[in-house]
């Protein structure tokens, strides 16, 4: 099972580190990262494996949302299937 973490906001130090730390703490394995900075605007997509996650996925979603609020970023963790359903036939 995989999930997508999206991060959008003003660029600052340590965004990837903070997101990665939460992933590591919950045994969520990062499989792919795609990241760009355009005019101080940070945007990142992270594909993660949640098959061995140590907390309910809903709690992980909440942790990511809180991390976003604390750092003035928009962070969403969503199950990969919603993107596959919408964009792949």
């Amino acid at each position: 099972m995989k999930a997508v973490i999206s991060v959008v906001g003003k660029d600052t130090f340590g965004i990837i580190a903070k997101v990665s730390a939460v992933c590591a703490g919950d045994q969520v394995n990062i499989q792919d990262i795609s990241q760009t900075v355009l005019q101080d605007y940070f945007s990142m997509i992270m594909l993660v494996d949640i098959s061995r996650i140590s907390v309910p996925f809903a709690d992980f979603v909440d942790q990511m949302s809180r991390l976003g609020e604390e750092n003035n970023l928009e962070i969403h963790a969503m199950h990969e299937d919603i993107f596959n359903a919408m964009h792949r036939i």
Binding site: V4, S6, Q31, D32, S34, S43, I45, L47, E80, F83, N84, M86, H87, R88
Partner: peptide, 8 residues
């Protein structure tokens, strides 16, 4: 990985 534009 799903396409970046599709995700956004």
């Amino acid at each position: 990985m799903p396409n970046r534009n599709d995700i956004f």
